[in-house]
């Protein structure tokens, strides 16, 4: 302590000295440079990393995607002139993150619907593909978590968001995805998938990019805050208990009717048949037994 005081005292004696300003200036420059050195190389690293990622994505793309989407993502037409694989020049990273991150791409076979299935690429590979496709043109980037995460919100604020989200959901989403997000049929063998239990990020990306036949709900159409409201509403639906018991997919009277006819009537009929077919008979005679 004494040593410190002594040196500080010695330093302060020079504070009005002729070179004091120069020293302070040098110190300031050193500090700025040091800080810059501490943070800026990190950026330089990410830029290099990004370049690496794009390169990696390009390689993956050529192996896994180029057959349908073309070697430079320009799209492939069939001989008949219809779309075989659409162009990916302006779909953006968000579309790739959604399609690959939910296992829709790569498709198992061409068809009306790209069903959700087991994810083929790991997180790093998905990020690489997204980074590569983002370089092909314009398009939405992968959304930041704060755009769709409802975590840490006040309860009142969240309730307000949920009720607003419900209104928006009913006006824009229920037509295809059903009033509780269970999905529904679309023309020519397609269907709007179930959107319950889907990652908030993927719901956000789906609205942003309009996968497959879905319309897009760009930020100019439904503002980001309202997209978050829709996600909050869907999360609330997921948390809500089934007050009336099993929902049977929430598809309304059709699924409920099928269950009522097949299970509600079928099981009693099968039970009745089973009763009628099973009787134990004895080989004994009544007289013998009584004798």
């Amino acid at each position: 302590m004494r040593l410190l005081n002594r040196s500080a005292g010695r330093l302060s004696r020079h504070r009005r000295g002729p070179i004091a300003g120069l020293v302070v200036l040098l110190l300031g420059l050193l500090l700025t440079g040091g800080l810059y050195a501490a943070f800026s190389p990190a950026q330089a690293d990410t830029a290099a990393e990004q370049e690496e990622l794009v390169k990696e994505g390009r390689e993956l793309f050529l192996v896994g995607c180029a057959f349908c989407h073309g070697q430079n993502g320009e799209g492939v037409l069939t001989q008949g002139g219809s779309q075989y694989g659409p162009a990916l020049t302006d779909v953006g990273a968000a579309a790739v993150d959604f399609q690959v991150g939910t296992g829709r791409m790569p498709m198992a076979q061409p068809g009306a619907q790209a069903p959700r299935k087991e994810v083929v690429y790991n997180e790093r590979e998905t990020a690489a593909l997204a980074a590569y496709v983002a370089t092909l043109g314009t398009g939405p980037a992968i959304p930041d978590e704060e755009l769709y995460s409802t975590e840490g919100m006040e309860e009142d604020e969240l309730n307000e968001l949920v009720s607003r989200g419900g209104q928006i959901f009913l006006a824009n989403c229920t037509a295809c995805h059903n009033f509780e997000g269970s999905g529904g049929a679309m023309p020519r063998g397609g269907y709007a998938p179930k959107i319950r239990g889907v990652d908030a990020k993927h719901i956000y990306e789906a609205m942003l990019t309009g996968p497959q036949s879905m319309d897009t709900f760009s930020d100019g159409n439904i503002p980001p805050e309202d997209k978050k409201a829709v996600i909050a509403y869907l999360e609330m639906l997921d948390e809500q208990p089934g007050y009336a018991g099993f929902s049977f997919g929430g598809l309304g009277p059709v699924s409920e009717g099928i269950i009522a006819w097949l299970v509600g009537l079928g099981v009693p009929v099968a039970f009745a048949v089973w009763i009628a077919a099973h009787t134990t008979r004895s080989s004994k005679k009544k007289d013998e037994a009584q004798a």
């Binding site: 006006a171 824009n172 309009g210 319309d215 897009t216 709900f217 760009s218 100019g220 159409n221």
Partner: peptide, 14 residues
Amino acid sequence: PILASDLEIGDLVN
């Protein structure tokens, strides 16, 4: 209200 420039190709607005 909706600005004409708000919408992207593929957007559907109710």
